[in-house]
Nucleic acid binder design. Structure first.
Lengths: 150, 150
DNA sequence: CTATATAGTAAGATAAACTGACTATCTTGT
DNA sequence: ACAAGATAGTCAGTTTATCTTACTATATAG
């Protein structure tokens, strides 16, 4: 009734629900655009891959998964033609993982879908509140990462 | 440099990071309090279990997983003594899943840990902004759930 | 130039989800 | 009253995404 009525839902769930909604929307959107061979777990690779290419170990660190897990995801993405691996001329142990043309198309599509979701949310929530939400999340992340260092 | 500098991080990741931070904190906190046999996947059961007890099928629906998955999680929680199953006197097919005393202790502990995290965040972000964040998330969830119905 | 660190791979285990098929029980329409 | 269909929950098997431990090849530093 009152504006102070306690929501039974806990903060964890309140963050999870919109997060999963975004993942579902991107997944769905990519499928309808013909990218049918991707799974949500692969997104994290795209999120961290550098335009010039990245090493597997870097990707694993940034995504906070083991390099074996990263390797498996990269193998799949390579088999599907989204990324390629070249030997690193500066390090004989290492390979450079980078997007193919198709990979860049996929990334573009994902960004477009995300923009559309953000736009919908901005329409219904108001531009100002969405911007505010993003700024608060950004600040929250900064202090979480601060805490993780210590 | 400027306040308008574009954050490379996408909204999906911005929601995921604090969500995962909460999950990690609760997981960690429960461990140090002696609840060592739980995994994050079990949280979703606790989140939806009704004080009077719930049916497995209800839990599965609310948690948005199959009843087989819910069944496996419940089996584990039962083996660890957090929940119990009684035959439903009103329905011979059904069983009532409800918290044991230990289950209620666990739930209490989890809420305390979450409160502590929220308090920390409130201290660093300001009470007002945290409240605002929760309200925005709540509104966002409402419109996501609205959209899901259609 | 040897010792150690790093990049990536291999093999195998596990957790958490899924689908499809099944039994037992309840509900409903005639 | 009862047959047809719906619902609660289980069983068996599979997939996906993760992990740990152990390894090879190469690089770097004392």
């Amino acid at each position: 009734m009152t504006q102070n009525q306690k929501d039974r839902r806990m903060l964890g769930a309140m963050l999870r629900i919109p997060f999963q909604a975004i993942v579902a929307r991107i997944n769905e959107g990519l499928r309808t655009r013909g990218f049918t061979d991707l799974r949500p777990a692969h997104f994290v690779i795209f999120q961290h891959i550098h335009p010039e290419g990245s090493h597997l170990t870097e990707l694993a660190e940034q995504a906070q998964i083991t390099k074996q897990s990263a390797g498996a995801l990269v193998d799949h993405l390579m088999a599907c033609g989204y990324i390629e691996r070249l030997p690193d001329p500066n390090d004989g142990r290492a390979k450079i993982v980078r997007l193919t043309e198709r990979g860049r198309e996929l990334e573009k599509a994902a960004r477009e879908i995300l923009s559309q979701v953000e736009q919908e949310w901005a329409e219904q929530l108001g531009d100002e509140r969405l911007t505010q939400l993003k700024q608060t999340l950004k600040d929250l992340i900064a202090l979480i990462e601060e805490g993780a260092k210590s």
